[in-house]
Design a protein around this nucleic acid. Structure first.
Length: 347
DNA sequence: AAAGCAGACAACCGCAAAGTC
DNA sequence: CGACTTTGCGGTTGTCTGCTT
């Protein structure tokens, strides 16, 4: 709907930017611009960043000749100017991953974004709040099940919804297919705190990788929560559309258009990763090429590192070629299930 | 054609953690 | 060790745009 080129109609607002909640301001220039960024400002910041790399943001704002606070510059760079940003609509795979990650991480947008290359937390947050949440809510209102209905004694097909805190619960999710683990064949509900799912599991590098835990609004482990990755993968193979389609029939995306990340030239930003590619003016996502030095995207199931377990963050895209279009989404989703820092969020 | 509405997204705000002096 | 600064995060607001009435 809205074109990505903003900042043309910048309102001349001035502000006293204060990062410290009113505790002080060491910026000699108290009249700082506020509001949308102009193309000139973007250019200044971009040029400065490409030349000097990332540093102290307040210095950047000053040295780049911007009448902006460092905080504003940082946000602009991270959310808009960064060369490794991917633009355009979220692909169905990305949607699926977001939903999946959100079911695990909750509103930890930065952590979710770290697992979606080229996407920012702000972007994902907006997308969630404007699109996914609404879809799921609509779907939930038409659902026969209530969010608080954790009666898992019945094996029902999928319903999904969003609790008051915005966390997805997947209840009664094709239980017959999911609850194959004999140890949990009863699919009985369990209170999350009793699962030892406090701030972190005891050993963060040795997570209970055979469990995916999805909690309903009361923190009750849903009836679909316990199954092994292997079973999940089997399920995903059987149901390629998986969670997404079961939630509400996402996928109204038409044909994905080729979109290659990056800019027309190779970009080498000090302090940032090298990305290589050619931008297509079309928005939409499919086949862009990143360079991933480690080429480790979510395929190292034996890894001891959190990042390696669940994929890499935005900071790691460099090195050998990596094709987004060839993402092992299913593998990614499977590995995401093994997030070791499964904080239990009381909503 | 104008007004109203809703979607999408950029940007701000407040807070907290981390870092520095 | 405390004060101050910087950075990062999540919630929220503001603005633009396309669609509908």
């Amino acid at each position: 709907m809205r074109k990505p080129d903003h900042g043309i109609m910048v309102k001349e607002k001035l502000m006293s930017c204060n990062n410290n909640g009113g505790k002080g301001n060491n910026n000699s220039n108290n009249k700082l611009r506020k509001g949308l960024w102009s193309p000139e400002e973007d250019e200044k910041l971009m040029n400065y960043m490409l030349t000097n790399g990332q540093g102290c943001w307040s210095d950047i704002a000053r040295n780049a000749g911007l009448q902006r606070c460092g905080k504003s510059c940082r946000l602009r760079w991270i959310n808009y100017l960064r060369p490794d940003l991917k633009r355009g609509a979220f692909s169905p795979q990305e949607e699926e991953l977001i939903i999946h990650l959100h079911s695990i991480l909750g509103n930890r947008w930065s952590q979710i974004a770290a697992r979606l290359p080229g996407r920012t937390d702000n972007e994902i947050k907006n997308f969630w709040n404007s699109t996914i949440k609404k879809r799921l809510k609509n779907n939930n209102t038409t659902s026969t099940s209530s969010p608080n209905n954790s009666d898992s004694s019945e094996l029902k097909t999928t319903t999904a919804g969003v609790n008051m805190g915005g966390t997805i619960f997947l209840q009664e999710y094709d239980v017959s297919a999911i609850c194959m683990d004999s140890s949990s064949s009863s699919c009985s509900s369990m209170q999350a705190p009793n699962m030892g799912l406090g701030t972190h599991v005891a050993n963060p590098f040795n997570p209970p990788i055979d469990h995916q835990n999805i909690f309903d609004v009361n923190g009750v482990l849903s009836s679909s929560s316990v199954f092994t990755i292997q079973q999940q993968q089997q399920q995903q193979q059987q149901e390629q559309v998986g969670v997404i389609e079961n939630i509400g029939g996402f996928g109204d995306y038409g044909v994905m258009e080729p979109y290659v990340m990056g800019l027309e030239n190779d970009l080498s930003v000090p302090g940032l990763e090298v990305m290589r590619g050619v931008e297509n003016s079309n928005y939409g996502v499919s086949d862009y090429v990143l360079e991933n030095k480690n080429n480790q995207y979510c395929n190292n199931s034996t890894s001891n590192s959190v990042e390696e377990l669940v994929g890499v963050g935005n900071h790691h895209w460099e090195g050998e070629s990596f094709k987004m279009g060839e993402l092992d989404w299913e593998g990614l989703l499977a590995n995401v299930s093994s997030l070791p820092y499964l904080d239990f969020q009381v909503q």
